[in-house]
Design a protein around this nucleic acid. Sequence first.
DNA 1: CTTTGTGAATATTTTCACAGCT
DNA 2: AGCTGTGAAAATATTCACAAAG
Lengths: 229, 229
Amino acid sequence: MGDVPEGVIERLSTYLNCLIKFQQNNVETVSSERLGASCGVNPAEVRRDLSYFGTFGKKGVGYNVKAMIPCIQHILGSDEPHKIALVGAGNLGSAVASYEGFSQHGFHIAAIFDSDPAKIGKKIGGVEVFDVRDLPRVAQLAGITIGIIAVPPSAAQDVANLLVEGGVSVILNYTTALISLPSHVQLHNADPVQQLLHTLYYLSANDRSLVRRKRVGASHNRARHTSRS
Amino acid sequence: MGDVPEGVIERLSTYLNCLIKFQQNNVETVSSERLGASCGVNPAEVRRDLSYFGTFGKKGVGYNVKAMIPCIQHILGSDEPHKIALVGAGNLGSAVASYEGFSQHGFHIAAIFDSDPAKIGKKIGGVEVFDVRDLPRVAQLAGITIGIIAVPPSAAQDVANLLVEGGVSVILNYTTALISLPSHVQLHNADPVQQLLHTLYYLSANDRSLVRRKRVGASHNRARHTSRS
DNA sequence: CTTTGTGAATATTTTCACAGCT
DNA sequence: AGCTGTGAAAATATTCACAAAG
């Protein structure tokens, strides 16, 4: 009953990142050992992760970097273009809008939305700012599939509703607000506070637990990594 | 040999968030069922997660919202203040600097760093911008434990090295760059592209896999959530 | 000799299901 | 009657270890 584990998909996007870096350094082939090392993943896990989708390597040689990249892009779906609606043209919105990394992976900010009349009609990074009330109409018209919420937390749920109405499939939420969504829409929380919070636990030796623990001060140290959200 | 699973810690910060929202709505007690529902987590998992750290609930009643919050804060370590060094005073840096959510959880941006002479010496959100070359010295002096990288990707590794030299324990990386770090420093990647990439896989029906799959078009739909990072 | 792809073994995480407290 | 806390079961995920390929 084993489908592709969620972790596999997360790691795949990490592998893709690494492979792109390898390519930039003119590395032609990588072994699962090398790829794993650069992502903080066990080599056997790299091999199994890839084996869910086919066989990509040459025994005795490894994986061809150049050939691998479009394969993973295809698996993830980043070989097709995806249109983004960015909501919120404030500080954070502007940062996201001016972020160069999107286009490299087929993402395209198609429209920006805000409620501030002073911003509506202007352009940010070459993209027009629309009235947020027009969001559902514009999003549907433009075929937007991804929404990014970069507004104050108090407005986040309203914005989420408009995005759903506009037909998006994925919402990336940069606020601390808790968002409720119909189950066919994916929610991904990217609030920096949330992200920092759970790293704190691993900071100082764990005498934090309020109950006697099994192994105290044990080794949770094999190069702690994280990515996801 | 089972220590506290990493997932538990991630969920804990989600529970905290939910509990704070419940408190704002004057909810006095929550059952694991209710808390779980609002976080997208199975009630039994909520109970087990909490049980790693003690017993917090009353049988037949549930968990006291007000009492629970400081407990989780203590477990995570967010009851103590934490100083942040923010590197990069551009668009993204400014967005992070003006983010109100930090202080609520004991985070405090103690210093901002940039390499642009035009920015050095100015203030952003009341915090002074220092020369990035002074980072190690200033960070050590101020007792900074967390570094946030919000510079162009090409400078990210250099910045990371300076942060390590400055003695930070956690680095939140907002760039696409791959960062190498000594194993005693926690790395957390928060690149929005990475975050979006792996959601794509779940977007359209999965005919993406390059090999025949077991159950095609199966149900991966129990209200897909994400947070971590 | 090197490195893949994968059955089988391990380890971890989640969920069930229920005894026991309030 | 309602809900927690937790053994035991089930489900998932990771890692080992090796046959087969280049």
